[in-house]
Amino acid sequence: MTIILSICVAVTFAVSIYLMTGRELKSIAMGVFLLGHAANLSIIAMSRTPVRHEPQLLKGAPILTEAFDAARPMSSIVDPLPQALILTAIVIGFAVMAFLLSLLVLTSRKAGTLNVEQLAAEAMQGA
């Protein structure tokens, strides 16, 4: 699983960089969006491989019973910490995304263009 996840991370990251270095603000926004996915996937890969062949889906392993103690080895569950990190990252990512898109709307209204080069040229003239 980790190999597949790593490949996914590599591909999404590469595409997001490709998009972000473009000249069009919409593509850049989508690149930022993809970057969030890539980072989250990279973090979840750290929580070690899930229990094989038997993903416990919604009744999943991170939900524990009281019986969780030294007798029950840690290896029976995945690491919960990355999940907590990603959970907040997703929500923050949403807020940042919305803010970015709002800025995009305002930019296109004020400057009349979404081309990065033209925007930079205007900023230089303004400064």
């Binding site: 996840l5 790593s6 991370v9 591909v11 990251f13 490709y18 990279s42 750290m46 919960p80």
Partner: peptide, 25 residues
């Protein structure tokens, strides 16, 4: 993009397989 993607992907692979116990978790 390809260079960075491969670098991050490799990093993920190596880090996930580093074998360190998830002490904090």
């Amino acid at each position: 993009g390809t260079l960075t993607g491969v670098a991050i992907g490799w990093l993920t692979l190596v880090a996930a397989q580093s074998g360190a116990e998830p002490k904090l978790g």
